[in-house]
Design a protein around this nucleic acid. Structure first.
Lengths: 100, 100
DNA sequence: TTATATTTGACACATTTAGTCAACACTAAG
DNA sequence: CTTAGTGTTGACTAAATGTGTCAAATATAA
C-alpha cells in the first residue's frame, strides 16, 4: 500500500470530504482518485499539490513523499538500490554546490 | 553529458570497437548506441549489462550508475530532491530489514 | 427501498519511448 | 578523386505506458 495514498486518504477523511466531492474539487474522475489513494495508480505532482491545498495540508512533506515513492519505484527489485541512492545523493550535492 | 554514456564510450574505445561493431554485437541500431553514449537517449538496464559483458567490464558499478542516473532524472529541478533521496533511503532500509 | 460512497474493469485517447532507416559529414588510405 | 571506415542526425513507424471516461458492481446506512 502506498504511503502517499494512505496519507492523502486520511487527510481527505479528516477534511470530511467524500471521494466524489474531493475528486470534483480537483477536477478529476472519482475512479482515478480512488485508485490513486489505494496505490493502484500513480499520483501526479500537480494533483498532490491540488489535494494538499484542498485539505489545507503541508504540501512540502507530501511532495517529498511523492518523489520518494517515485524513486523507490525505480529501484524495485534492484540489488544495488541503496548504493544507487547514495551515488545519486553524492552527485546531487555536487550539482547543487556547483550549480550545474 | 551523461556519466554512464561517457564511461561506456571509453570502455568501448578501450576495447577497440567501433560504434557499428559494438552495436552489432549487442544487437541494436548504431544510431541508438550513438545517442545513448551522448546522453541523448536513455540506456536500458539490459543493454548496460550486455555492454559490460562485451567490454569485459564490471557490471556492478555500471548498473549503479545507470540507476543513479535514473533517480537524478526524476529529481530534475526539484527543490526537495535531497530530502526525497533521504526519505527513500530510509524506507528502503526499512523494507530490506523487514523483507517487505 | 432509496441514497450515498467506493471500487472495479473495459475501453479509447494521448503521450512517451524504442526501434528503423537513409543520408550526411568527416577522415584516412589507396 | 574514389573508396571505405567512422560517428551523427532527423524523419518516420511501432510499441508501450499513462491518463481519462464511463457504466456497472459492491457496500453501507437511513
Amino acid at each position: 500500500m502506498s504511503t502517499l495514498g494512505l496519507k492523502l486518504r486520511e487527510l481527505r477523511e479528516q477534511s470530511g470530504l467524500s471521494l466524489r466531492k474531493a475528486a470534483m474539487q480537483v477536477d478529476i474522475d472519482v475512479a482515478i482518485l480512488s485508485k490513486m489513494e489505494r496505490g493502484e495508480r500513480k499520483f501526479s505532482k500537480e494533483l498532490v499539490l491540488k489535494l494538499a491545498d484542498l485539505y489545507k495540508a503541508n504540501s512540502h512533506k507530501l511532495v517529498i513523499d511523492f518523489l520518494s515513492e517515485k524513486l523507490l519505484y525505480d529501484l524495485e527489485d534492484e540489488d544495488f538500490g541503496l548504493e544507487a541512492l547514495k551515488v545519486a545523493e553524492k552527485q546531487l550535492k555536487y550539482k547543487k554546490q556547483k550549480n550545474v
